[in-house]
Write a protein that binds this DNA or RNA. Sequence first.
DNA 1: CTGTGCGTTGACCGACCGGTCAACTACGGT
DNA 2: ACCGTAGTTGACCGGTCGGTCAACGCACAG
Lengths: 200, 200
Amino acid sequence: MGRTGGTRERIVRTSARLLLSRSYGSVSVDDVCTAADVRKGSFYHFFPSKAELAKAVVDLHTEALLDRLSAAPGASAAERLHGVADALGTIQTGFESTFGRVVGCPFGNLAAELSTVDDTLRDHLASAFARWEREFAAICHRAQDDGVLRDGVDPDRLAHSLLAHAQGQILLAKVGGHSAAEVAAMLHDLIDVHLHEGAV
Amino acid sequence: MGRTGGTRERIVRTSARLLLSRSYGSVSVDDVCTAADVRKGSFYHFFPSKAELAKAVVDLHTEALLDRLSAAPGASAAERLHGVADALGTIQTGFESTFGRVVGCPFGNLAAELSTVDDTLRDHLASAFARWEREFAAICHRAQDDGVLRDGVDPDRLAHSLLAHAQGQILLAKVGGHSAAEVAAMLHDLIDVHLHEGAV
DNA sequence: CTGTGCGTTGACCGACCGGTCAACTACGGT
DNA sequence: ACCGTAGTTGACCGGTCGGTCAACGCACAG
């Protein structure tokens, strides 16, 4: 079947890198083709449009993120909760060392730029976020079952908060030039205030 | 002095609207000129570049936001803290009714799209965010002085968290199609978990 | 050996992009 | 009455954008 030189994958991975280092609007199809050493006709053989490429990039990151989340260790639910913060921190640290600074969240960047512009892309991103959130929510529910959540804290809302907080912290780090480590620290703080004292 | 037909202001206000409803990359200078009924030469009489226009739009929103924050009522620091959430909620509700949905934060949208692309714009946005954060921090410190902050909660970090949370919640609402009211509710929740039980 | 179809190539396209410019208008100061 | 100047106008520009296309290479099935 789809076995040749792996051109499509090369395009997607190259695009992922370019989109992180700049933005959707400032990365042209020509840029992608040059960086991936692919001719434009080939590009349009695999992707009907630039927007579809963006969706493929979203899928790539989604897969990578979910893999990393499910691989996160932690015996107790509280540990797993902090493991989420660690996982996000690790990802951001990776981007930081690749690009020399925090460059934002691949999902958040595209969501901010394009969700008012392209409805199908917004849907795509919304379902990617929903998968994140479901993953988080499962852990939050386990935390509640373990009784480590403070009274009155709703696990579903906590999951949503965690996601929002991550997005916001990453965005602020990107614009303010803060480090990925600070982002992770703030996420750990957020988790801690939702847990009973002495939990973990 | 600068008294004519108020062309410059019309350009900025029109751009603010267009940028919110779409994105920087998808709004052309021609779009702005058409919507503002201004010829392109006039545009470039007032702005040396499209990027400078974006900065002017940022300044417009900054002024509006700071006005609204300082006008927020609330006798106690805890009330003022919730007043911040209300103010942000009100602004988002306004956008929601203007555009028919949550369209994101004017600062956050531009920050996500352009802070890896244009350094001067990133600086501009960073200092705008810094002003927000200072405003928030002042209120958080007052809250600490009043003893309503939970033990171990650092007011400066809380201010940063509040800002991040607002950005994240607004972004998620934009992509997920949630309402401004839900955003505000989540912000109130965040504030509450940082306050002693029974405060307010 | 030949047909079939995926992948590739490079030339090509019209639209639109951000930005420029010289000429013109209108008004306030003298 | 004159001038300087802020503002306005519309034509113009080179470059780049996303996207198209006909022709070609080439592996594999028959």
